[in-house]
Design a binder for these strands. Sequence first.
DNA 1: CGGATTTGACCAGCGC
DNA 2: GCGCTGGTCAAATCCG
Length: 529
Amino acid sequence: MEKQHSRELTFLHSGDSLRPNSGVADRTLEDSSDHVEPHIKEMDFFSTQYQSHDHHHHHHHQEGNTNNNGSSSFIDSSVNIGLNLLSSSPGVSRATNEEKHKAQESALKVELEKLNEENRRLRSMLDQITKNYNELQGQLLMALQKQAHRNQQEQKDAVNGMASSIMSVQQFMDPRPSSALDVNEPSGSDDKTQELSASPENTMEIVSKEYDHRMVQNMPGKQVSIEDSTDQTSQNWGSLKSPKVDQSKNEDQVSEVPFRKARVSVRARSEAPLISDGCQWRKYGQKMAKGNPCPRAYYRCTMAVGCPVRKQVQRCADDKSILITTYEGNHNHPLPPAATAMANTTSAAAAMLLSGSTKSKDGLPTSAYYPSLPYASSMATLSASAPFPTITLDLTQGPNAVQMLRPPPSATSFPLPLHGYPQLLGNPMFGPSKLSTASPALQLGQRPASMVETVTAAIASDPNFTAALAAAISTIMGAPPRNQGNSSNNNDENNNSSNGVGVPALPGSPQIQQSCTTFSSKACTNKPG
DNA sequence: CGGATTTGACCAGCGC
DNA sequence: GCGCTGGTCAAATCCG
């Protein structure tokens, strides 16, 4: 509280010269009058100065006709004021002061109104920008999916000698833009595949709804379909995990699918026990995970009833300063800006999986992306070791981290262009952070949310990342679900242009109805062992 | 007192 | 089939 408050003040002061946010100023003024806190003194001091300034300003306006006199009178009055204050001057000068004070008030009000007006304008501009951004993002995702579809078509044409079975699988996948539905499906899912193919409409509907949901949650102004997508999302989640909750609407194969959805992981360095990401979470469990002395905590989103989003928080075994947070699912409710940005990140990463899965046969050498990209500060790791695809965004990577990172045999890492924002996820701006350390980003005047947005933008817009992610997905899909992944991965470099072919891939992957983002802190990558 | 957290129990998936 | 592990549930407890 106090920190936030002082932060506001800091922001007010620092930003004053630029363009003070009237809203902040209002709140601060109110607060200073309502509460007695240490910073109030500072505020009063500031106010005094401001009054003096305004006094001068006002005087200048009032005495505009007599500039010279006005100027001199200002000086005189200021001197008199000082005297009055010290020696309780006569009523005459006091009346003058009251007049001036009223004039100051009116001037302040006028200025305040101006600021409010400007604030409104800025807000509307921000809304518009956000809207445009989300629209563009959606278009980008669509374009990616289309491109993925096209690529696979081309590959199909190029690969004439493929086994008929593989061809049939691809043909099945082609018509579905978000074939992430099939990513990583165990080879035993032939039945499922057939079922899905038998009812493509369901699949498509889910995919489109998923997409709509993302768009909706990213667009505050378009909440009309939230319930719809909410319904879908929660159904999917419920069906995934709790058969008891017999939401037998989609009792179809789709909802019965036992797998989880894709995961998107991000690493962030944070000393806080929990990362503030703009959402409200309730802890519902804790477990000791194998191979890590630090317990893994399970949280679910409580911002809305039935929100399917959950996350896991775990510290890196080798470096306790690294907090690993795993997000799953998409929110079924409007999100605050920071959380929206986070959701964008998740959605973008998931979209990468979705789009990448369709061009699974690209066969780009995954390992080649480590050194090839100049990005240094963060990385994304796509892992197939888990039963569901996982993307890890390493936000704390240093330039050397590329070499330091030890991707799992079937995982691929992608540097992200996130320069110098290691504290992103721990930033207080994401919510009432328990972090005792001030946010560097904030102090730098950088909106923390923009960090996440940057991640999102990086994921969604960076062609290299897109390609790399697609390649990694290809690796996953190309790799048989579990142990065989390595061989496939190893072959990737050789299969750069032809790998796709051999992959029986059988992606049959879990439907990525929801995305999962894992935020971890640090660079476990830098860990010695 | 209500909400959040803790923690042991339970369940499902998976490997042997 | 059994045991291990991850994930979830829910009663007990804590806390504001």
